[in-house]
């Protein structure tokens, strides 16, 4: 276990390094561009309100003081990191005085709920489909059923989302067009509300699942083909084991592991893909908030969302990395 402990510590240090580097980049970008998003936002508001422009500089100054932007760079930097360590993401400009934490975490629940279920479902279904496709003794017609499904993975999720909205919600009227729950209701704990939320989640979920299944199936199919020539497969065959046992315990068991690595690699794509699907459906998750924040140029909310997503992805990757040696004994041996 000593080796494994060492490995976990190493991965954790890498996790901290990624988070630190990402926050540093996020800190530097606005200062490199020479633009001041806060001041620009104020200017915009002033233009909209037609207020007098004279007080603006003073206003911007007091803002800068409020956000500590008049202090030396390294003080700003350490303050920024300190705030981050406390998970304090600042105050929204557009929805003042709400904090970014408040806004982001409210929408995060919707995003995580949808994404967790959908990613898991797509992973299981896609891996299964790929395993069957990569198996030489499958019925021949399966090829013609699954292959078009794989092509779906090439279509971006938000376009599938638009097609689904048009056909299922607009033409057939079976499911709601947009939102996370009916506009007339308030979020509560009743059974009716749960059903309402579920009905709103079905279309976004299917948009993501349809295109993700192909991705997992393609990866799994390649891995299954690679197991075909292996010695342990020939041995299992020679022992006269049942086909189903060879399939599950020998081929799938060995082909499955790279899929887990694949999950770690595409987490970022999954999140950004979902951000856009949420935008198409006006789903009250993090993607919709991000769009609102971009529209209102609410810099602190945008920054907060970026930080939360990077934290989430780095954290999930760390967990997968740590779990991987537990799943694959070969990695444990190689490390020792």
């Amino acid at each position: 276990m000593g080796v494994l402990g060492h490995f976990i510590v190493k991965r954790f240090l890498f996790f901290l390094f990624v988070v630190w580097l990402a926050s540093t980049i996020i800190f530097i970008i606005p200062r490199l561009s020479g633009q001041d998003p806060v001041k620009e936002k104020l200017l915009l508001e002033a233009q909209r309100g037609g207020a007098m422009q004279t007080g603006l500089d003073a206003m911007a100054k007091s803002y800068q003081k409020r956000f500590g932007l008049d202090q030396p760079m390294w003080v700003q930097y350490t303050n920024f990191l300190k705030d981050l360590a406390k998970l304090n993401l600042g105050v929204s400009i557009a929805f003042f005085p709400r904090t970014v934490n408040d806004i982001v975490f409210e929408s995060l629940m919707w995003t995580l709920g949808l994404m967790g279920t959908v990613t898991l479902l797509a992973f299981v279904l896609g891996t299964l489909a790929g395993a069957i496709l990569g198996w030489p003794r499958k019925p021949g017609w399966l090829q013609y059923v699954f292959m078009p499904l794989l092509t779906l993975s090439a279509i971006p999720q938000y376009l599938l989302a638009m097609i689904l909205i048009f056909v299922v919600a607009f033409k057939l009227g079976w499911l709601p067009l947009f939102g996370g729950y009916s506009p007339a209701t308030l979020p509560n704990m009743s059974f009716e509300f749960a059903i309402d939320v579920l009905r709103h989640a079905i279309l976004p979920a299917f948009a993501i699942i349809f295109s993700a299944i192909g991705f997992w199936a393609i990866g799994m199919r390649g891995m299954m083909i690679n197991t075909q020539g292996e010695d342990y497969m020939i041995q299992a065959d020679a022992k006269g084991l049942k086909g189903s046992r060879i399939f599950m315990r020998y081929a799938v068991r060995n082909a499955l592991l790279p899929q887990v690595t694949g999950l770690a690699l595409v987490l970022g794509t999954i999140v950004t893909g979902q951000v856009l699907v949420e935008r198409v459906f006006s789903y009250p998750g993090i993607g919709d908030i991000l769009f609102q924040a971009i529209r209102l140029s609410d810099f602190f909310v945008i920054r907060g969302i970026v930080i939360v997503i990077i934290l989430g992805i780095a954290g999930a990757t760390f967990l997968l990395d740590v779990l991987y040696p537990l799943l694959d004994p070969r990695i444990r041996v190689r490390n020792s």
């Binding site: 990624v18 606005p30 490199l32 561009s33 970022g268 950004t272 990757t317």
Partner: peptide, 21 residues
């Protein structure tokens, strides 16, 4: 590369684009 893979490019692009203004 490892760090780059951990950061979704789209988000970095959004930040850069917002700041270019």
């Amino acid at each position: 590369v490892d760090v780059g893979l951990a950061m979704p490019a789209l988000l970095i692009l959004i930040l850069v684009r917002i700041n270019i203004g």
